[in-house]
């Protein structure tokens, strides 16, 4: 195990505290600002009311249910999008003709709001979670495809030359030189794809209450009918907690690992 591995896995508790403290402080400041805003805006429920609502939702299982269903839906859709997207990206970077033909369309699709496909999918495939899952999965792909393809294009030629000199064939080059060299860029593409997928999920929920089966749409529906925002704010808190957890536990960790193992964190080592 290298020292950088040790740094990533063995974190002592004072260090954890030091790292966690700024996140906590920012959180408290945001809650305070929210509380002040709620005093001036009558319709906006404050942190206290929202907390009570969250407590109620935790009690009757709605909180866990939303959390689990969001995790499941996003997990399945994003995993498929990630695998297929990275593969297409690698193929594009190896086949210039395919790249010229397809990349402009991927760029166009990445730029346009994916949610526009939701009505199309809903009518073609029916208003089931399957139709939204299809849109979310395919919608996240262009960003991942282009992220991968651009990352591969930016691999330093010196490394590919070194790989070829050392007798690597095409497969070895792809797996052991190009892919690891492109990994930081691929990760950025994945993060972008993730956020596009999540936007698309909520767009589906706004379009029709039960499209993703996560329960978010039902909450939106109820707050639209009653004009009462407490449950909506509580749901926003649940989703925010979910995205923050994913970032802290997955993306931020992966980025840190990548930067540490590639020497992109200046630790005052010899140059």
């Amino acid at each position: 195990m290298s020292p950088s591995d040790a740094r990533a896995t063995v974190a002592s508790s004072p260090r954890d505290l030091r790292r966690g403290l700024p996140i906590l402080v920012t959180g408290i400041i945001l809650l305070a600002l929210w509380a002040i805003a709620a005093v001036f805006a009558d319709a906006l429920p404050g942190p206290g009311e929202t907390g009570q609502e969250l407590w109620r939702m935790a009690g009757d299982g709605q909180l866990v249910s939303i959390f689990v269903r969001v995790t499941l839906f996003m997990g399945v859709c994003f995993s498929i999008a990630a695998v297929v997207g990275v593969l297409i990206g690698l193929v594009l970077s190896a086949r210039p003709a395919a790249d010229r033909g397809l990349s402009p369309y991927f760029a166009g699709l990445q730029g346009m709001p994916t949610g526009m496909w939701i009505p199309v999918a809903a009518i073609l495939l029916g208003t089931t979670p399957l139709s939204l899952a299809a849109v979310v999965t395919i919608g996240a792909m262009p960003a991942i495809v282009l992220g991968t393809r651009n990352a591969v294009r930016n691999v330093p030629p010196l490394l590919t030359r070194a790989g070829r000199t050392l007798g690597a064939d095409k497969r070895t080059m792809l797996r052991h030189v190009v892919f690891p060299a492109a990994l930081p860029g691929i990760t950025t593409g994945l993060e972008l794809g993730w956020s596009i997928a999540f936007r698309c999920l909520v767009a589906g929920e706004i379009f029709s209450g039960a499209l993703s089966g996560t329960g978010i749409g039902a909450v939106i529906q109820r707050s639209r009918e009653t004009g009462e925002l407490t449950e909506m704010m509580a749901t926003i808190m649940i989703v925010l907690a979910f995205t923050m957890l994913v970032d802290r536990l997955v993306f931020a960790r992966v980025q840190l690992r990548l930067r540490e193992s590639r020497g992109l964190i200046d630790a005052g080592l010899p140059h």
Partner: peptide
């Protein structure tokens, strides 16, 4: 035939 470059060209992730 092995080529050694001016820059070390080592793979940074290994």
């Amino acid at each position: 035939r092995m080529l050694v470059f001016q820059e070390h060209a080592l793979f940074p992730w290994l």
